[in-house]
């Protein structure tokens, strides 16, 4: 994972609530066996509609997306995070995210920032004309108009994002603890080893 500590730039003012993973990337795009190239399918159904924010030249190449409640609900497809990254998006700001999507976003260094609805409403306005700045270190979202919104983030995730931690590598350092757990369980709950079909 590439380290990420701040994102600054234009933002797509999408605002829509319950943006599900089928909207972010339809199932037809899931047949790939690689992680790249999914930007072409990102938000396909929304992009079919005239006047959509993604094809508006005013927001071309925006690294931030602003959305409504429950962003990324639905399927576990990490393709949603891959497609957004491939489209050039580095951060999403919304009042809430589905648990699975926020996990997938984190694994790919895509910031999922939670702010209350009134802050979202304000940022939607600002995004029409100006840049938005997300700073992970100070956990704030700011605008050129002195707006300053603080957000919460899990300290472990913050550490991993800022330092670009390879999480599997980190967990593998706990191999001895995992082995000890496995030994304890195979003695106390031997039935947990499945009878292979």
């Amino acid at each position: 994972m590439q380290p990420i500590s701040s994102v600054k730039g234009k933002a797509y003012p999408l605002g829509l609530k319950n943006v599900d993973t089928d909207i972010i990337i339809p199932a037809a795009w899931l047949k790939t066996i690689s992680r790249s190239g999914l930007g072409k399918g990102a938000f396909q159904t929304l992009r079919g509609v005239a006047g959509n924010v993604f094809d508006d030249p005013a927001y071309a190449g925006a690294p931030i997306l602003i959305a409504g409640d429950n962003f990324g609900c639905g399927s576990s497809r990490e393709h949603a995070a891959w497609a957004m990254a491939d489209l050039g998006i580095s951060a999403v700001i919304a009042p809430s995210f589905s648990d699975i999507f926020s996990g997938n976003a984190f694994k790919n260094g895509l910031l999922a920032i939670v702010l209350p609805q009134d802050a979202i409403d304000r940022l939607m306005e600002v995004a029409k004309t100006d840049d938005i700045h997300i700073d992970l270190e100070t956990q704030t979202v700011t605008t050129p108009f002195q707006d300053r919104f603080a957000f919460e983030i899990d300290p472990f995730r913050k550490h991993c994002l800022i330092n670009g931690v390879d999480e599997i590598g980190l967990t593998l350092k706990s191999s001895d603890a995992i082995s000890a757990y496995e030994n304890k369980i195979s003695a106390s709950q031997p039935w947990l080893s499945p009878n292979q079909a």
């Binding site: 497809r77 990490e78 694994k107 999480e167 706990s174």
Partner: peptide, 18 residues
């Protein structure tokens, strides 16, 4: 519970999740 592909890889490699 459902997990993404990075977590699938994490479970395959470590049999655990953070």
């Amino acid at each position: 519970f459902g997990i993404g592909t990075s977590e699938v890889e994490h479970v395959l490699a470590t049999q655990t999740l953070q």
